[in-house]
């Protein structure tokens, strides 16, 4: 597994995936740079808790960036193997198909959480720049950075599944686009839709529920995807 993962990291070299994990969180914070740059005084009047209000503003775009980012990352990674049908070469090596799939998932999860970590630092950096108050709410900061990523694990598992079993990358991209549209209209979606979860909204107002659901259902979808991947003939 470790061997496969280091090989997978080598394969994403020069593919711009690291840049993408950087651009995602940067974009989310950059939108707030524009927002606060234009109407900082107005925004600071909106709430007593300037940090909390700022974090909510940042978080309003995080789910969108995550869902979009996952769709792009997964189909990029699948396309590396699909481009010259390197799946057949990879699977003819003495490795189990289950670990091949696990390695891809792990790679994506690492990129996702790396992106979340960057989001946390960017958010904190711009928050400090805005001088929102001396007491930085570190817990809230971490929560708004990592919770959406955990809640998005089912989307990651689903996208990887679709991307790795379809020969036509149009299919995962289409699913990804619908996911982004769903994530954009989270307010209107019922609680059971996985694309709503990264918004951390639910009828009980408990973000933790989305995190636990995300990890649980994410694991389940991962297992289903892995078994289906292993079961299929390699073309």
């Amino acid at each position: 597994m470790g061997k496969l993962l280091t090989a997978d990291f080598l394969k994403i070299k020069r593919k711009g995936l690291w840049l993408l994990t950087l651009i995602g969180p940067f974009g989310v914070v950059a939108l707030q740079m524009v927002n606060y740059g234009v109407r900082k005084d107005y925004l600071l009047q909106q709430s007593e808790d300037d940090w909390g209000y700022y974090l909510l503003n940042v978080h309003s775009f995080t789910p969108l960036a995550i869902v979009l980012g996952i769709a792009i990352l997964t189909s990029f990674i699948a396309s590396i193997e699909n481009e010259t049908n390197a799946w057949k070469q990879l699977i003819a090596l003495p490795v189990s198909k289950l670990t091949v799939y696990l390695s891809k998932f792990t790679l994506l999860a690492i990129l996702l959480f790396f992106s979340s970590t960057l989001l946390m630092f960017f958010t904190m950096g711009y928050g400090l720049f805005l001088e929102l108050g001396d007491t930085v709410p570190y817990m809230e900061l971490a929560k708004y950075s990592y919770f959406p990523a955990f809640a998005a694990l089912p989307i990651l598992a689903l996208q990887l599944w679709i991307a790795s079993v379809s020969h036509n990358q149009g299919i995962p991209i289409t699913v990804g686009i619908f996911g982004v549209i769903f994530a954009y209209s989270s307010y209107l979606l019922p609680d059971w839709m996985i694309w709503k979860w990264p918004s951390l909204m639910n009828q009980w107002n408990q973000p933790m529920i989305n995190v636990l659901l995300g990890v649980g259902i994410g694991f389940l979808l991962y297992i289903i995807g892995m078994i289906d991947f292993a079961r299929r003939d390699v073309k």
């Binding site: 061997k3 090989a7 080598l10 394969k11 010259t84 490795v95």
Partner: peptide
């Protein structure tokens, strides 16, 4: 098998290195 599989964005050495890591 059939058409050769390779990673076009990598060099020949890196292509083999990716496989070498797995084969140990």
């Amino acid at each position: 098998v059939e058409n050769p599989s390779y990673y076009p964005h990598l060099t020949a050495y890196e292509n083999l290195e990716a496989l070498r890591k797995i084969l140990g």
